[in-house]
Every structure is written in structure tokens, then in C-alpha cells.
Simulated scan of single mutants.
Amino acid sequence: MPSPLKALCGALIAVLLAASPAFAEQSTVDDPAASADPVRVMPLGDSITQGGSIGGYRLDLGTKLRAAGRAVDFVGSLADGPGSMPDRNHEGHPGWTIAQVDASVVNWLRTYTPRTILLHIGTNDMYGSDPAGAPRRLSALVDKITAQAPGATVFVSTIIPIRFADSTVRGYNAAIVPLLRAKAAAGKKVHVVDMYPAVPISDLPDGIHPNAAGYAKMATVWFNALSSVPGSIGDPPAPGGACTATPSVTGTWNGGFQAEVTVANTTATPITGWTVQFTLPNGHSVSQIWGGAASGSVTVTNAPYNGSISPGASATFGFLASGPGAAAVGTATCAGA
């Protein structure tokens, strides 16, 4: 007959063995998140945030963020978009007004604790019973968000056009901008994003909701806004030491310039891809690029044909930039894969 001590040890071993698969599964799930530490971003609004079966602006925005090497996790209680879309979570509620979002937002913020919030709301208020009161309601909603999540960065956009209510939309947008800027001036982490001019009415098949082209334009505006605020989508990829990027201006004209960037492999092993980041003068943006793919105006990834660089070799890409003032390209960093 086994002793009580042996019986106890045997029971403990049995418990540990039975639990070990769960421990192994938990480790597999947690380790990537711990290492990547993605920034939690909440797309917040109505059907324009939800985006129908194509995933709205969230589809292209996610693609741009991944191409830029940003570790971002869209969060929210809903999940929509094509099955192939890597990250489908959001808080875009079709048909909802500002007041309806206001009634639920505290619970969402507590549940999903976003670091960054993208708010496009007010469209359904424009043809409701009190469009004139919509700016006041938006102001109260933003105050509630910043009170509940004071550490979060809140990007609030003007709303895109409505074909049959354009003057109402313009009035709403004109009213909310100074309200939001006043909050920023008071120290709240609120940023105004001017979305209205980005989406033409021709990109609104039903007069309200964008098509794929319109959503892609919204994604570009969101991406540029996020990229302009340090920390809102994490830090840019650190230079990997595998490559260097040397820019040079090769031509100038009134209102723009042409530049070339040489990407050199400085290691003893091949690299299979690269990402270059640089800055442009205020007011300038990339209007055309070759030998790479641009995200926003400051991040370029290799083209399919020039991503692999042997030790000691180099590749180049070039671009055209437009804008006022002197031609210049800031210090460039390079991360290799």
C-alpha cells in the first residue's frame, strides 16, 4: 500500500501533466503578442467605419501600417470585412448617431483599452431631427472619451460629403474644428483630421458611403495623420544595421524636385528586403516613385525586383516630390530583412 506522501506526489504530478497542454497553448498565444506589443487602435463611428463587406478604410489602412512595419491591433466588439482581411475588429455601428455612440463608448473603452482612437461620426445626425446640435454632441462625446481614456490619442475627423446634404455637412465640419482645436490647446490628446476634401462625391455611389476608391483615400488620410503623431501607432522600425540609405537631390524646379536614394547592404550576408524612412520639407509630399512602394510620404519598401541585395552591393529607388520651398531630403534610415 503506498504511503500518503507518495500518493500526494502522484496526484500533483497527474495534475501538472494534465495541465501542461493548456500551459503550452497559452505560451504559444502570448509570446508573439508580448514580443510585438501591438498598439491597440479603435476605429470608431458608424457604417462608414464599418465599411460593408469590403472592410471600409480599415482594409487599406491595415495594409499601409503593416507595410510601414507598424505593429497595430484594431480593437472593438465588431468584426467585419473580407475573410482574407488580417484584422477585422472595430466599433463602426451602421446607422448610429453621435448620441448612440456616446451611450456605449465608456464600456468599449474599458473593455478594449485602446491606445489610439479613430473617430468619424456625425453622418446620421446630418439628416436627423437636430443637425444643428450635432457639434455640441460631438464635443461632449470627445470629452467623455478623453475623461475615460486620458492617455489615449484621439483622432477626430471631419465627416465626408453627403450628396444631398452638402451644406449641412460643411456647416457641421466648420463648427467642430475650432471645438476640437480648443480641446487640444487645453492639453487633451485630440487631433483634428480633415477628411472631407479627401473623398469626392463621385466616390459615393449612394451619396453617403464610399466605394473602394473612396475608402482607399480615407485610409491614406488616416495613415498620414497617424504617422504625424509620435507613438500613436508605435515607433517606426529601428534601423536594422543591415543597410544604409543615402539620398541625393538630382533635379529641381519651381514647386518640386527629383531625388534618388541608394540602399547599400553593409553586412556579410544577403538581405531579402528593405524599408527606408526619411523626411521631406514641410508641405512636400511624394507625387511619383519608382523602384519602391511609398506609404505616406516618408516610408518606402523595396519593389519585387530590387529587394535582394548581396553583401557589398546596392540598389536604388527614385521619386518626385512636390511642394513649396527648397528641395531637401532629411536623414534616411534603412532596415533590412
Rank of each mutant, 00 (worst) to 15 (best):
Ser3Lys: 11
Pro4Arg: 09
Leu5His: 02
Leu8Val: 06
Ala11Lys: 01
Ile13His: 09
Leu16His: 11
Ala18Arg: 11
Asp30Thr: 01
Asp31Arg: 15
Pro32Trp: 14
Arg40Asn: 14
Val41Cys: 02
Met42Phe: 03
Pro43Leu: 14
Gly45Gln: 08
Ser47Arg: 06
Ile48Tyr: 10
Gln50Thr: 01
Gly52His: 02
Gly52Met: 12
Ile54Met: 11
Gly56Lys: 04
Tyr57Cys: 02
Asp60Phe: 14
Asp60Arg: 14
Leu61Thr: 02
Gly62Leu: 14
Thr63Tyr: 10
Val72Tyr: 08
Leu78Glu: 12
Asp80Trp: 13
Pro82Glu: 10
Pro82Arg: 09
Met85Gln: 07
Met85Tyr: 05
Pro86Gly: 13
His90Met: 12
Glu91Tyr: 05
Glu91Ala: 09
Trp96Cys: 10
Gln100Val: 03
Val101Lys: 05
Val105Glu: 03
Val106Thr: 14
Val106Asp: 12
Arg110Asn: 06
Thr113Leu: 06
Arg115Lys: 13
Arg115Phe: 02
Thr116Arg: 14
Leu119Gly: 05
Ile121Trp: 00
Gly122Leu: 07
Gly122Gln: 09
Asn124Gly: 14
Met126Leu: 08
Tyr127Glu: 15
Ala132His: 05
Ala132Gly: 07
Arg137Thr: 02
Leu138Cys: 05
Ala140Pro: 01
Ala140Glu: 08
Leu141Ala: 01
Ala147Gln: 01
Gln148Ala: 08
Ala149Arg: 00
Pro161Ser: 13
Arg163Met: 14
Arg163Ser: 13
Phe164Ile: 12
Ile176Met: 10
Val177Cys: 07
Ala185Met: 07
Gly187Glu: 07
Gly187Arg: 01
Val190His: 00
Asp194Met: 04
Asp194Ile: 15
Val199Thr: 14
Ser202Leu: 09
Leu204Thr: 13
Asn211His: 10
Tyr215Val: 09
Ala216Asp: 12
Ala219Trp: 00
Thr220Ile: 08
Phe223Ser: 00
Ser232Glu: 09
Gly234Gln: 08
Asp235Leu: 10
Asp235Ser: 13
Pro236Val: 06
Ala238Ser: 15
Pro239Asn: 12
Gly240Tyr: 10
Gly241Arg: 11
Pro247Tyr: 12
Val249Leu: 08
Asn254Trp: 15
Gly255Ile: 01
Gly255Met: 00
Gly256Ser: 15
Phe257Gln: 06
Asn265Ile: 04
Asn265His: 08
Ala268Ser: 09
Ile271His: 11
Thr272Arg: 14
Trp274Gly: 10
Ser285Arg: 00
Val286Tyr: 08
Ser287Phe: 10
Gly291Cys: 09
Ala294Pro: 07
Gly296Trp: 11
Ser297Ala: 07
Val298Asp: 09
Pro304Val: 05
Gly307Pro: 01
Gly307Thr: 07
Pro311Cys: 00
Ala313Val: 06
Ala315Ile: 05
Thr316Trp: 01
Phe317Lys: 00
Phe319His: 01
Ser322Phe: 09
Ser322Glu: 14
Gly325Met: 15
Thr331Val: 15
Thr331His: 02
Thr333Asn: 09
Cys334Trp: 06
Gly336Ser: 05
Ala337Glu: 06
